[in-house]
């Protein structure tokens, strides 16, 4: 495709991202840096402040489907699941807007989402993070990294690797228009296990990667090797997802009273 086609693809994908993904990096950064007129986020840094946040309706939704728990680590695990499920829903709508996606076999659409959503989530999480914590509840809360580290094992191991990734990923200083194409390229990945029509997926991804490369050259002219650095991040994300899946398996085994949302059960089953 020519340059103008790639530019219009980049614009289309960016618009789909803005339309379907609720918390943009732009919005998150304005909250994290205090450059917004809305109230600053409520800071959760210990059990008391977590309880206050739950009772003060920082979160819009209650935790549905999960058994009630008094254990704080389990509670945080359920909150992570709620956010993940909602983001999977948003990412599915985003994927459907990527040109060519709905023309794939339904089987392949399922496979791409099964393997792609966690990588996509973990590359969007850094938008909500700084080295000290992360925004939650649509920007109304901020949970400190120290608090998450203080949970008992294995729940203290859930978020720390994501913070380590985020600090490095945020150094690339991507904005939402870059992230939109990067997330699309992650979802349209031709080497997911069990794809029926690999070539069809690769053709779509190839277009997206060309659009991303062109977009980065225009948008970050002084950032050398940004495109190959992002390709490397795709491999890092795969590793992060593998480790996350192993941790979820461990929690399932050792924490028998802890339940996993049915959508996440589907995604993790026979994944890696």
């Amino acid at each position: 495709p020519g340059g103008s086609d790639l530019k219009s693809l980049a614009k289309h994908v960016y618009n789909a991202y803005l339309k379907n993904l609720n918390m943009t990096k732009k919005k998150a950064r304005s909250i994290l840096t205090g450059r917004t007129s809305t109230n600053p986020p409520f800071v959760v840094h210990d059990m008391d402040t977590l309880w206050q946040a739950e009772n003060g309706l920082v979160w819009n939704q209650l935790i549905h489907g999960a058994p009630p728990t008094k254990e704080i680590g389990v509670h945080v695990f359920y909150r992570c699941q709620c956010t993940t499920v909602e983001t999977v829903r948003e990412l599915t709508e985003f994927a459907k807007s990527i040109p060519g996606f709905v023309g794939l076999y339904l089987n392949d659409q399922v496979t791409l989402l099964k393997y792609g959503v966690h990588e996509a989530i973990f590359c969007m999480l850094p938008s909500l993070m700084n080295k000290d914590g992360l925004l939650v509840a649509n920007g109304k809360g901020f949970v400190t990294r120290e608090f998450l580290r203080s949970l008992r094992r294995p729940f203290n191991e859930i978020m720390e690797p994501k913070f380590e990734f985020a600090v490095k990923f945020n150094a690339l200083e991507l904005d939402d228009s870059d992230l939109a194409l990067f997330v699309a390229a992650i979802i349209l990945c031709g080497d997911r296990p069990g794809l029926m029509n690999v070539r069809q997926v690769e053709e779509i991804q190839d277009n997206i990667l060309q659009a991303l490369n062109l977009h980065l050259q225009a948008h970050h002219p002084d950032s050398l090797y940004l495109f190959p650095k992002l390709l490397q991040k795709m491999a890092d994300l795969r590793q992060l997802v593998t480790e996350n899946a192993q941790l979820v398996q461990k929690i399932k085994k050792t924490e028998s009273e802890t339940s996993l949302h049915p959508l996440l059960q589907e995604i993790y089953k026979d994944m890696y």
Binding site: E86, R89, T92, V110, E266, I267, D270
Partner: peptide, 20 residues
């Protein structure tokens, strides 16, 4: 794959999914 991923299927075919 369809049997094992009923919710993902439903999400792909409808934008709303009541059991989420």
């Amino acid at each position: 794959l369809k049997e094992k991923h009923k919710i993902l299927h439903r999400l792909l075919q409808n934008s709303s999914c009541s059991d989420l």
